[in-house]
Amino acid sequence: MEEDRVAELKEIARQVRIDILKMLAKAGSGHTGGSLSAVEIVTALYFAKMRHNPERPDWEERDRFVLSKGHGVPVLYAVLGRCGYFDRKHFETLRQLGSLLQGHPYSGLTPGIEVSTGSLGQGLSQANGIALATRLNRKDCRVYVLLGDGESQEGLIWEAAMTSAHYKIDHLCAITDNNGLQIDGPVSKVMAVEPIARKWEAFGWHVLEVDGHRFEEILAALDCAENTKGRPTMIVAHTVKGKGVSFMENQVKYHGTVPTPQELELALKELQV
């Protein structure tokens, strides 16, 4: 049963990777590496954890997902499209004039996008605000937010980290896509954020560490977060930037470049299309 479920999620993840690569190649610009590193995380949330209804994106009781590392939006579009928030034919229009799919998440336009991001560092505070509102409204919903490891260099992340702990926002679960790379190189060389788990612990968070590409671990951590009361949970997900395409894995270069037609062909072959 559990095995079937994981096999199913793996297949969805494979499809999501294909959609990401195709939409980015078509768009001609965008962020490949950080979209691929988060595929299992976002897939697990939308297909196995969150309570949500693609037919009613504004359903009050829904769980919320905030993509704080907004440049990774192709993974979110791929997942939202697959859930049915909008027609997948929109993938082809990514980043074009008049498209439903803006270069970075825009809540004013795209069904399923909760928060407008793209300017790094701003998602966790907004997730806190959403969580405080749902608490005041006595709605039983959970709020998830995905951060980048490079993004965690922003001071605002740590202001927000204090807020979540201070207000005991235990229906909030943050996940760090700890892929070790940012634009200018390895996070450890540009501006070290390790020991990241201990930092969050010191800020009063319940911290879990997982392999961010293993559904069993991600789902177990998400369940554990849900059962943790009195403080927020941070899941540090160890991931590989560019995951799933051998020549993109751990390559700084694929942060903000997209596959050429030849690369796309190779990549799709690896993903067994």
Binding site: V115, Q126, A127, G129, I130, L132, N137, L156, A160, T163
Partner: peptide, 24 residues
């Protein structure tokens, strides 16, 4: 219904944005 955010104006504005996004 009152949130003192401490000395953190950026966090205050983004938290307010989140509250507004959920109908407050």
């Amino acid at each position: 219904r009152f949130f003192n955010m401490g000395v953190s104006e950026q966090d205050m504005i983004d938290t307010a944005a989140g509250l507004a996004a959920s109908g407050k």
